[in-house]
């Protein structure tokens, strides 16, 4: 499986992955976090992606890096998901953007890397009030992923 991506590092507890976006606006530190959570008695991990302010170390969720590297960022996020599921083999990962356009970005990330990741992960999409097995190029409200 060859996915072009940014190199990334994981935290000691493997819940966080960091990488740098590089482009016309310079280097931007990105953080992917898998936050453990429980709903209706089922434990899962909520995926979050944010920029990190290198000076303060704080999360900057309002910034727009605009480095023209969305595909590369999404491919890197996809690989952090695969890596995380390698560490936590029974984990469920919930993915939903803060806005419909952000969710759409995740949709694009899954869709454009689908041929490379589909043998590794099972993905469900939430569509019109129902969960269904992910179908490429269909617009979903949210996603759940688990290792095959």
């Amino acid at each position: 499986m060859a996915i072009t991506h940014y190199p990334f590092v994981s935290s000691k507890n493997s819940l966080e992955f960091e990488f740098y976006s590089k482009g016309r606006n310079g280097k931007v530190k990105k953080l992917v976090r898998f936050s453990p959570q429980n709903a209706n008695g089922t434990t899962y991990f909520s995926l979050g992606l944010a920029d990190v302010d290198e000076e303060t170390g704080n999360i900057n969720d309002l910034s727009i890096s605009d480095n023209q590297d969305t595909e590369l960022i999404l491919a890197t996020v996809a690989l952090t998901v695969l890596d995380f599921l390698q560490q936590f083999q029974d984990a469920l990962i919930f993915v939903k953007g803060n806005t419909p356009s952000r969710t759409r970005l995740y949709q694009i990330g899954i869709s454009s890397n689908w041929d490379k990741i589909k043998s590794h992960v099972l993905i469900y999409g939430h569509f019109e009030g129902q969960w269904e097995v992910y179908q490429k190029n269909k617009s979903y409200e949210a996603f759940l992923a688990k290792r095959k």
Partner: peptide, 23 residues
């Protein structure tokens, strides 16, 4: 088992409001 390098000095963002709200 991981393709990632491990950052042993990283800050823990578990309590960052952005991730807490998202969860």
């Amino acid at each position: 088992k991981s393709k990632a390098l491990s950052n042993t000095k990283g800050k823990d963002y578990g309590n960052a409001p952005f991730f807490v709200k998202k969860a």
